[in-house]
Simulated scan of single mutants.
Amino acid sequence: MTDSSVAALRAASGPGARTRVWDLPTRLFHWALAVAVIGMIGTGLNGAMEWHFRLGYTVLALLLFRVLWGFVGGRWSRFGAFVYGPGSLAAYLRGRAHPDHLIGHTPLGALSVFAVLTILAVQVSTGLMADDEISASGPLTRFVSGEVVSLATGWHKAQGKWAVIALVSLHVLAVLFYVLIKRHRLVRPMVTGDKLVSSESGQVAPSRDDAASRWLALILFALCAGVAWWISSLRV
């Protein structure tokens, strides 16, 4: 969306109302994943393999939780809220964004989210099957063939590692661009959960973020953490 179209939308819409867009589980997931991924990259580069494995299992649990939360979470955290077709993406790039694009994830933001989740899922999966033949091997190496172990190890230590670093760097640069250049408030809503929604967007349904949904999220994450722990217990 161009700066002029954003300005026009804001001018036409008048004052807005604060709306709960990001529920607490989504916000905690976001910041926990950021810390875990940065830690996973750092420990991998420095050879601190025990912590690298621990953070990898943490990322695995977080990813499993996000998949589940993408179906039962708050309104704007569900995948259905930011799965856009080619037409929506093209309209957004031409400066004709739908009002919903300014509430949750934009079409470009949605592509970034799915790219990050996919690359991280592949990196964690290959890590579970990787073996450096020195001191570290994943818990699933004994369940797959040597050829699969070799392919997984090669990807995890080379292309996958740099793909994760590139995506993380690109994500940070994109956030800085939108915050510093386009003056979009992206960080604060992911801290507080609330976003100033213009009246142009009409009646916007907020994300559910009550005690019941938070307890549900806690139960789901506990189950996902249990799966990650069980997988880690297979390591010999």
Score class of each variant (00 low, 15 high):
99 P>C: 04
169 S>Q: 06
130 A>E: 08
151 L>R: 00
60 L>F: 11
69 W>Y: 10
84 Y>S: 06
153 T>P: 02
84 Y>A: 05
151 L>M: 09
160 G>Y: 05
169 S>I: 10
142 R>P: 13
100 D>Y: 00
79 F>S: 03
105 H>I: 05
120 L>I: 11
131 D>T: 11
168 V>M: 09
109 G>A: 14
143 F>W: 15
147 E>A: 15
70 G>P: 06
59 V>W: 00
167 L>T: 04
60 L>I: 09
105 H>D: 12
59 V>F: 01
46 N>F: 10
54 R>M: 08
97 A>F: 07
143 F>L: 11
65 F>W: 13
72 V>I: 12
126 T>A: 10
99 P>A: 01
73 G>S: 12
85 G>T: 06
56 G>E: 05
164 V>A: 02
118 T>R: 12
134 I>M: 14
153 T>R: 13
77 S>C: 13
63 L>V: 11
123 Q>H: 15
122 V>S: 02
71 F>L: 15
161 K>W: 14
123 Q>W: 08
81 A>R: 00
145 S>Q: 12
64 L>T: 12
91 A>R: 14
60 L>Y: 06
93 L>D: 03
103 I>N: 06
119 I>D: 04
55 L>G: 03
122 V>K: 05
83 V>E: 02
159 Q>V: 10
108 L>Q: 06
123 Q>A: 08
122 V>Y: 02
78 R>C: 07
112 S>C: 11
73 G>E: 03
134 I>W: 13
155 W>L: 10
132 D>H: 11
170 L>A: 13
152 A>I: 04
110 A>H: 04
107 P>F: 03
65 F>N: 06
45 L>D: 05
138 G>L: 10
95 G>Y: 03
127 G>H: 11
168 V>F: 13
170 L>M: 09
90 A>L: 05
125 S>Q: 07
74 G>R: 07
62 L>C: 10
157 K>I: 08
45 L>K: 03
54 R>K: 14
77 S>T: 14
63 L>E: 06
72 V>K: 09
85 G>F: 07
108 L>T: 14
87 G>H: 07
103 I>S: 07
91 A>G: 08
168 V>H: 04
93 L>E: 02
67 V>H: 12
53 F>A: 13
103 I>P: 03
98 H>L: 05
125 S>M: 14
137 S>R: 15
100 D>I: 01
129 M>W: 04
50 E>W: 07
165 I>W: 01
52 H>W: 04
88 S>H: 06
60 L>E: 01
62 L>M: 12
84 Y>P: 13
64 L>I: 15
159 Q>F: 14
167 L>D: 02
100 D>S: 09
152 A>F: 04
53 F>H: 08
62 L>H: 09
127 G>N: 12
76 W>S: 02
62 L>I: 14
131 D>A: 14
137 S>G: 10
117 L>I: 10
109 G>I: 04
171 H>N: 00
107 P>S: 00
85 G>N: 11
96 R>G: 05
